[in-house]
Nucleic acid binder design. Structure first.
Length: 100
DNA sequence: CGTGTGACTGGGC
DNA sequence: GGCCCAGCCACAC
């Protein structure tokens, strides 16, 4: 089959947009699911297209986000009922995979 | 086409 | 639990 070098941006955005409320995915998990880009590649997409997606549903492997986003992310996690532990996302419980 | 940088990650101290 | 370092991939200049 023809693997078209579809833009990583569109692929990442599509995955993020498919994450249900109350769940999250790590940068590495998204990269691993797509099999391309790597965590840095996903990060680059979020940095550029973050505002147009549910950016608060994409967190680091330890369930945190950069300080400037942690502040705005809190209410989103609270409203969506995202599993929180010590003020940060409990990735062990909140992590979601498209295969489900 | 080489270099630098980033919303990352895991391992070591 | 924290900080530091090296590896990683895509993109901008």
């Amino acid at each position: 089959m023809s693997d078209r070098p579809e833009e990583l941006s569109d692929l990442v955005i599509e995955v993020v947009d498919s994450i249900p409320a109350g769940r999250v995915m790590t940068f590495g998990a998204i990269a691993d699911y797509l099999g391309r880009g790597g965590p840095r590649g996903v990060a680059g997409v979020m940095a550029r297209h973050g505002p147009e997606v549910a950016w608060w549903r994409v967190v680091r492997a330890d369930g945190t986000l950069p300080p400037y986003l942690m502040f705005d992310a809190q209410p989103h996690w609270l409203i969506e009922g995202t599993p929180i532990r010590h003020g940060i996302v409990d990735v062990r419980r909140a992590l979601w995979q498209p295969d489900e």
